[in-house]
Design a protein around this nucleic acid. Sequence first.
DNA 1: TTTCCTTGATTTATATATGGACCATAAAAT
DNA 2: ATTTTATGGTCCATATATAAATCAAGGAAA
Lengths: 112, 112
Amino acid sequence: MPKSITRTYSRYTYNAAALLGALIREARNERKLTAQELADRAGISRGLLQRIEKGNLKCEIGAVFEVATIVGIKLFDANERTLMKYLRQTKDKLTLLPKSVRKKTKEMRDDF
Amino acid sequence: MPKSITRTYSRYTYNAAALLGALIREARNERKLTAQELADRAGISRGLLQRIEKGNLKCEIGAVFEVATIVGIKLFDANERTLMKYLRQTKDKLTLLPKSVRKKTKEMRDDF
DNA sequence: TTTCCTTGATTTATATATGGACCATAAAAT
DNA sequence: ATTTTATGGTCCATATATAAATCAAGGAAA
Protein backbone atom coordinates (compact mmCIF):
# COMPACT_ATOMS: atom_id res chain seq x y z
CA MET A 1 0.00 0.00 0.00
CA PRO A 2 1.54 3.22 -1.11
CA LYS A 3 -0.73 5.42 0.92
CA SER A 4 -1.29 4.52 4.52
CA ILE A 5 -4.89 3.42 4.71
CA THR A 6 -6.82 2.51 7.81
CA ARG A 7 -9.58 0.13 6.96
CA THR A 8 -12.87 0.02 8.73
CA TYR A 9 -14.79 -3.19 9.10
CA SER A 10 -18.42 -3.86 9.88
CA ARG A 11 -19.31 -5.69 13.06
CA TYR A 12 -20.48 -8.57 10.89
CA THR A 13 -17.02 -8.90 9.40
CA TYR A 14 -15.39 -8.80 12.82
CA ASN A 15 -17.68 -11.46 14.19
CA ALA A 16 -17.40 -13.72 11.17
CA ALA A 17 -13.62 -13.77 11.43
CA ALA A 18 -13.78 -14.21 15.19
CA LEU A 19 -16.15 -17.12 14.81
CA LEU A 20 -14.00 -18.83 12.21
CA GLY A 21 -10.97 -18.41 14.44
CA ALA A 22 -12.80 -19.82 17.44
CA LEU A 23 -14.06 -22.77 15.42
CA ILE A 24 -10.50 -23.49 14.34
CA ARG A 25 -9.27 -23.35 17.90
CA GLU A 26 -12.03 -25.66 19.01
CA ALA A 27 -11.35 -28.15 16.24
CA ARG A 28 -7.62 -28.05 16.94
CA ASN A 29 -8.21 -28.90 20.59
CA GLU A 30 -10.57 -31.73 19.71
CA ARG A 31 -7.98 -33.17 17.39
CA LYS A 32 -5.30 -32.81 20.02
CA LEU A 33 -2.99 -30.78 17.84
CA THR A 34 -0.58 -28.26 19.27
CA ALA A 35 -0.42 -24.86 17.63
CA GLN A 36 3.01 -25.71 16.26
CA GLU A 37 1.84 -28.97 14.76
CA LEU A 38 -1.11 -27.39 13.01
CA ALA A 39 1.01 -24.49 11.80
CA ASP A 40 3.55 -26.92 10.36
CA ARG A 41 0.86 -28.87 8.54
CA ALA A 42 -0.52 -25.67 7.06
CA GLY A 43 2.93 -24.41 6.16
CA ILE A 44 2.61 -21.26 8.24
CA SER A 45 4.24 -19.92 11.38
CA ARG A 46 2.85 -20.43 14.84
CA GLY A 47 2.50 -16.70 15.20
CA LEU A 48 0.25 -16.49 12.17
CA LEU A 49 -1.90 -19.31 13.48
CA GLN A 50 -2.29 -17.43 16.74
CA ARG A 51 -3.56 -14.39 14.89
CA ILE A 52 -5.90 -16.52 12.81
CA GLU A 53 -7.42 -18.11 15.92
CA LYS A 54 -7.93 -14.65 17.39
CA GLY A 55 -9.85 -13.60 14.30
CA ASN A 56 -7.31 -11.05 13.08
CA LEU A 57 -8.62 -9.53 9.86
CA LYS A 58 -5.26 -8.84 8.28
CA CYS A 59 -4.37 -12.49 7.68
CA GLU A 60 -4.40 -13.82 4.16
CA ILE A 61 -7.54 -15.72 3.37
CA GLY A 62 -5.57 -18.60 1.89
CA ALA A 63 -3.84 -19.32 5.18
CA VAL A 64 -7.09 -19.09 7.12
CA PHE A 65 -9.00 -21.36 4.75
CA GLU A 66 -6.16 -23.86 4.62
CA VAL A 67 -5.99 -24.17 8.39
CA ALA A 68 -9.76 -24.48 8.59
CA THR A 69 -9.68 -27.18 5.94
CA ILE A 70 -6.98 -29.14 7.74
CA VAL A 71 -8.95 -29.31 10.98
CA GLY A 72 -12.02 -30.37 9.06
CA ILE A 73 -14.16 -27.25 9.06
CA LYS A 74 -16.56 -27.28 6.15
CA LEU A 75 -16.71 -23.87 4.50
CA PHE A 76 -20.12 -23.11 2.99
CA ASP A 77 -21.30 -26.24 4.76
CA ALA A 78 -20.03 -28.12 1.75
CA ASN A 79 -17.63 -30.94 1.06
CA GLU A 80 -15.27 -30.91 -1.89
CA ARG A 81 -17.85 -32.24 -4.27
CA THR A 82 -20.61 -29.87 -3.28
CA LEU A 83 -18.20 -26.97 -3.29
CA MET A 84 -17.26 -27.58 -6.89
CA LYS A 85 -20.89 -27.96 -7.84
CA TYR A 86 -21.72 -24.58 -6.35
CA LEU A 87 -18.70 -23.08 -8.05
CA ARG A 88 -19.73 -24.40 -11.43
CA GLN A 89 -23.31 -23.22 -10.95
CA THR A 90 -22.24 -19.74 -9.97
CA LYS A 91 -19.82 -19.44 -12.85
CA ASP A 92 -22.46 -20.59 -15.29
CA LYS A 93 -24.85 -18.01 -13.95
CA LEU A 94 -22.11 -15.40 -14.28
CA THR A 95 -21.73 -16.00 -18.01
CA LEU A 96 -25.38 -15.10 -18.48
CA LEU A 97 -25.13 -11.82 -16.62
CA PRO A 98 -23.94 -8.63 -18.35
CA LYS A 99 -20.18 -8.43 -18.49
CA SER A 100 -20.10 -4.92 -17.13
CA VAL A 101 -22.41 -2.82 -15.02
CA ARG A 102 -23.43 0.25 -16.98
CA LYS A 103 -24.94 3.37 -15.53
CA LYS A 104 -27.55 4.95 -17.72
CA THR A 105 -26.62 8.53 -18.56
CA LYS A 106 -30.16 9.81 -18.65
CA GLU A 107 -32.52 9.52 -15.75
CA MET A 108 -32.95 5.92 -14.85
CA ARG A 109 -36.29 5.24 -13.31
CA ASP A 110 -34.92 2.53 -11.11
CA ASP A 111 -35.51 4.10 -7.77
CA PHE A 112 -38.76 5.99 -8.17
CA MET B 1 8.41 -12.93 5.78
CA PRO B 2 12.07 -13.36 6.41
CA LYS B 3 12.42 -16.57 4.48
CA SER B 4 10.80 -16.80 1.09
CA ILE B 5 8.06 -19.35 1.50
CA THR B 6 5.87 -20.76 -1.21
CA ARG B 7 2.62 -21.86 0.26
CA THR B 8 0.68 -24.83 -0.98
CA TYR B 9 -3.07 -24.93 -0.76
CA SER B 10 -5.50 -27.80 -0.91
CA ARG B 11 -7.97 -27.95 -3.75
CA TYR B 12 -10.70 -27.36 -1.20
CA THR B 13 -9.11 -24.06 -0.21
CA TYR B 14 -8.77 -23.00 -3.83
CA ASN B 15 -12.37 -23.80 -4.60
CA ALA B 16 -13.73 -22.17 -1.46
CA ALA B 17 -12.01 -18.89 -2.28
CA ALA B 18 -13.04 -19.14 -5.93
CA LEU B 19 -16.64 -19.73 -4.93
CA LEU B 20 -16.69 -16.80 -2.54
CA GLY B 21 -15.21 -14.58 -5.22
CA ALA B 22 -17.75 -15.73 -7.79
CA LEU B 23 -20.61 -15.18 -5.35
CA ILE B 24 -19.37 -11.65 -4.75
CA ARG B 25 -19.21 -10.96 -8.46
CA GLU B 26 -22.69 -12.31 -8.93
CA ALA B 27 -24.09 -10.26 -6.07
CA ARG B 28 -22.34 -7.14 -7.32
CA ASN B 29 -23.91 -7.55 -10.74
CA GLU B 30 -27.34 -8.11 -9.27
CA ARG B 31 -27.00 -4.93 -7.25
CA LYS B 32 -25.79 -3.04 -10.29
CA LEU B 33 -22.60 -1.87 -8.69
CA THR B 34 -19.48 -1.15 -10.68
CA ALA B 35 -16.22 -2.54 -9.39
CA GLN B 36 -15.11 0.95 -8.51
CA GLU B 37 -18.27 1.69 -6.55
CA LEU B 38 -18.07 -1.49 -4.52
CA ALA B 39 -14.35 -0.99 -3.91
CA ASP B 40 -15.01 2.54 -2.67
CA ARG B 41 -17.71 1.34 -0.29
CA ALA B 42 -15.38 -1.29 1.10
CA GLY B 43 -12.50 1.13 1.34
CA ILE B 44 -10.25 -0.89 -0.93
CA SER B 45 -8.79 -0.40 -4.39
CA ARG B 46 -10.43 -1.66 -7.54
CA GLY B 47 -7.41 -3.84 -8.18
CA LEU B 48 -7.85 -5.62 -4.88
CA LEU B 49 -11.51 -6.19 -5.58
CA GLN B 50 -10.58 -7.75 -8.90
CA ARG B 51 -8.27 -10.19 -7.17
CA ILE B 52 -10.91 -10.99 -4.58
CA GLU B 53 -13.49 -11.78 -7.26
CA LYS B 54 -10.97 -14.05 -8.94
CA GLY B 55 -10.51 -15.97 -5.72
CA ASN B 56 -6.92 -14.92 -5.13
CA LEU B 57 -5.73 -16.52 -1.89
CA LYS B 58 -3.29 -13.81 -0.92
CA CYS B 59 -5.91 -11.20 -0.11
CA GLU B 60 -6.55 -10.24 3.48
CA ILE B 61 -9.57 -11.94 4.89
CA GLY B 62 -10.92 -8.69 6.32
CA ALA B 63 -11.19 -7.13 2.88
CA VAL B 64 -12.85 -10.23 1.45
CA PHE B 65 -15.37 -10.57 4.27
CA GLU B 66 -16.16 -6.87 4.19
CA VAL B 67 -16.90 -6.91 0.47
CA ALA B 68 -19.01 -10.02 0.89
CA THR B 69 -20.92 -8.39 3.71
CA ILE B 70 -21.58 -5.24 1.71
CA VAL B 71 -23.17 -7.14 -1.17
CA GLY B 72 -25.25 -9.13 1.29
CA ILE B 73 -23.57 -12.51 1.32
CA LYS B 74 -24.30 -14.33 4.57
CA LEU B 75 -21.18 -16.00 5.88
CA PHE B 76 -21.94 -19.16 7.83
CA ASP B 77 -25.49 -18.80 6.55
CA ALA B 78 -26.07 -16.52 9.49
CA ASN B 79 -27.25 -12.99 10.05
CA GLU B 80 -25.64 -10.69 12.60
CA ARG B 81 -27.66 -12.06 15.46
CA THR B 82 -27.09 -15.72 14.68
CA LEU B 83 -23.42 -15.06 14.07
CA MET B 84 -22.97 -13.63 17.55
CA LYS B 85 -24.90 -16.52 19.05
CA TYR B 86 -22.57 -19.03 17.39
CA LEU B 87 -19.57 -17.00 18.50
CA ARG B 88 -20.71 -16.96 22.11
CA GLN B 89 -21.48 -20.67 22.06
CA THR B 90 -18.09 -21.55 20.62
CA LYS B 91 -16.23 -19.34 23.06
CA ASP B 92 -18.12 -20.87 25.96
CA LYS B 93 -17.22 -24.32 24.77
CA LEU B 94 -13.61 -23.19 24.47
CA THR B 95 -13.40 -22.27 28.13
CA LEU B 96 -14.29 -25.82 29.06
CA LEU B 97 -11.59 -27.37 26.94
CA PRO B 98 -8.02 -27.74 28.23
CA LYS B 99 -6.01 -24.55 27.80
CA SER B 100 -3.17 -26.34 26.08
CA VAL B 101 -2.76 -29.55 24.16
CA ARG B 102 -0.30 -31.78 25.94
CA LYS B 103 1.50 -34.70 24.39
CA LYS B 104 1.93 -37.60 26.76
CA THR B 105 5.58 -38.53 27.10
CA LYS B 106 4.96 -42.22 27.46
CA GLU B 107 3.33 -44.26 24.78
CA MET B 108 -0.14 -42.97 24.15
CA ARG B 109 -2.40 -45.63 22.81
CA ASP B 110 -4.33 -43.22 20.67
CA ASP B 111 -3.58 -44.58 17.25
CA PHE B 112 -3.43 -48.35 17.76
C1' DT C 1 5.07 -30.45 44.20
C1' DT C 2 8.01 -30.37 40.42
C1' DT C 3 9.00 -30.67 35.63
C1' DC C 4 8.43 -29.55 31.11
C1' DC C 5 5.66 -28.39 27.28
C1' DT C 6 2.34 -25.21 25.39
C1' DT C 7 0.83 -20.85 24.81
C1' DG C 8 1.00 -15.71 24.48
C1' DA C 9 3.48 -11.73 23.61
C1' DT C 10 7.22 -8.94 21.71
C1' DT C 11 10.83 -7.69 18.55
C1' DT C 12 13.28 -7.57 14.11
C1' DA C 13 14.21 -8.21 9.23
C1' DT C 14 12.25 -8.88 4.88
C1' DA C 15 9.17 -10.73 1.33
C1' DT C 16 5.11 -9.14 -0.54
C1' DA C 17 0.21 -7.47 -0.87
C1' DT C 18 -1.76 -3.23 -1.83
C1' DG C 19 -2.86 1.43 -3.90
C1' DG C 20 -2.41 4.20 -7.73
C1' DA C 21 -1.52 5.23 -12.36
C1' DC C 22 -1.49 3.64 -16.70
C1' DC C 23 -3.25 1.43 -21.11
C1' DA C 24 -6.02 -1.70 -24.19
C1' DT C 25 -10.10 -4.03 -24.88
C1' DA C 26 -14.90 -5.05 -24.38
C1' DA C 27 -19.43 -4.02 -24.20
C1' DA C 28 -23.40 -1.26 -23.03
C1' DA C 29 -26.06 2.86 -24.28
C1' DT C 30 -27.22 6.20 -27.60
C1' DA D 1 -22.13 2.98 -36.06
C1' DT D 2 -20.44 5.82 -32.57
C1' DT D 3 -19.57 7.07 -28.06
C1' DT D 4 -18.68 6.18 -23.49
C1' DT D 5 -17.29 3.67 -19.62
C1' DA D 6 -16.40 -0.68 -17.20
C1' DT D 7 -13.21 -4.13 -17.03
C1' DG D 8 -8.74 -6.51 -17.13
C1' DG D 9 -4.09 -6.17 -17.50
C1' DT D 10 0.59 -4.19 -16.19
C1' DC D 11 4.13 -1.72 -13.57
C1' DC D 12 5.97 0.71 -9.59
C1' DA D 13 6.62 2.42 -4.84
C1' DT D 14 5.75 1.44 -0.22
C1' DA D 15 3.17 0.13 3.88
C1' DT D 16 2.86 -3.99 6.19
C1' DA D 17 1.96 -9.01 7.07
C1' DT D 18 4.83 -12.70 7.94
C1' DA D 19 8.71 -15.88 9.71
C1' DA D 20 11.92 -16.49 13.11
C1' DA D 21 13.84 -15.93 17.53
C1' DT D 22 13.17 -14.94 22.18
C1' DC D 23 11.12 -14.72 26.80
C1' DA D 24 7.61 -15.24 30.53
C1' DA D 25 3.66 -17.41 32.37
C1' DG D 26 0.39 -21.08 32.67
C1' DG D 27 -1.00 -25.52 33.11
C1' DA D 28 -0.93 -30.50 32.26
C1' DA D 29 1.63 -34.63 33.31
C1' DA D 30 4.56 -37.17 36.45
